[in-house]
């Protein structure tokens, strides 16, 4: 086995043990995270949508489940599932738009499960999970009409996007609706920082489940990420120190 593959396997196994170990500690872990105001505002936007009977729109991006960036799509599906559970009782069912067919089918499944859990099966429509285009820009162009014409009060633009996300966030801002936006792509994050009212930066996309109280595993995985982050920082500092020493000696 090559060294990078071995290191990767060790990292995955260590993360797995960390996740399971921390999950077993259960209530001994205190849940305190840094405040991300966007999630508080989003929860309020969900409540408002249920009260005034307006619709929440989830733009899930155009990254396929068989793409290497698929984790962003899965994180957005998780956000969709838990947010839809909270807003399924609204007069207008939440909408999910995708730029990939397999992702659209998964979004339908997530919405159906969310409606079932919320006891609002009759509110679910198969057309609530939609394929809007099969290329990033055709998806963005197709989704614009949803943002403008379907009585949307809050947009969650989260998933695998490129710079085309700017068209969506700009449209959402023009309709003066609440916009929570997150992606894994760095150029797209820069675009969102400039154009969206509530952008999430870096790994905050993957933290949505923990902040939306989607379950203990989400909380635990945030702790495990922090532990690994500190380990990486220490290793980087040790590496830099050793290189410096080698240069001096």
């Amino acid at each position: 086995m090559q060294i990078p593959a071995l290191a990767g396997l060790i990292l995955v196994l260590f993360s797995f043990v960390l996740l399971i170990g921390l999950s077993m500690l259960k209530d001994r872990i205190k849940t305190s995270f840094r405040d991300i105001p966007a999630f508080g505002k989003f929860r309020r936007a969900l409540g408002t949508a249920v009260e005034d009977g307006s619709r929440i729109h989830f733009a899930l991006g155009s990254v396929s489940p068989i793409d290497s960036r698929t984790a962003a799509s899965f994180a957005s599906l998780s956000t969709l599932r838990h947010s839809a559970e909270l807003s399924a009782a609204s007069d207008k069912a939440p909408l999910a738009t995708s730029g990939d067919a397999a992702l659209a089918i998964l979004s339908q499944d997530s919405l159906k499960t969310a409606h079932h859990i919320a006891g609002a099966d009759q509110q679910y429509r198969s057309t609530s999970g939609r394929l809007m285009g099969v290329t990033p820009f055709s998806y963005a162009a197709g989704t614009l009409s949803t943002i403008y014409d379907e009585g949307i009060s809050a947009n969650v633009i989260a998933g695998g996007f490129g710079v085309e996300v700017g068209l969506l966030s700009d449209a959402a801002e023009r309709t003066r609706s609440f916009t929570l936006a997150a992606t894994d792509s760095i150029p797209a994050q820069a675009v969102l920082y400039a154009s969206a009212s509530e952008p999430l930066i870096g790994e905050e996309l993957y933290a949505a489940g923990a902040y939306l109280k989607a379950g203990r595993t989400h909380l635990v995985s945030l702790y495990a990420q922090d532990i690994l982050r500190w380990l990486i920082i220490i290793l980087l500092l040790i590496g830099a120190g050793m290189k410096l020493l080698a240069g001096l000696l």
Binding site: F16, E203, A224
Partner: peptide
């Protein structure tokens, strides 16, 4: 720095699944 965070997020999203 951002990519390290994204990589860790990706890893744990995969593990949760």
């Amino acid at each position: 720095g951002i990519l390290l965070g994204v990589a860790l997020g990706t890893l744990f999203t995969g593990l949760r699944i």
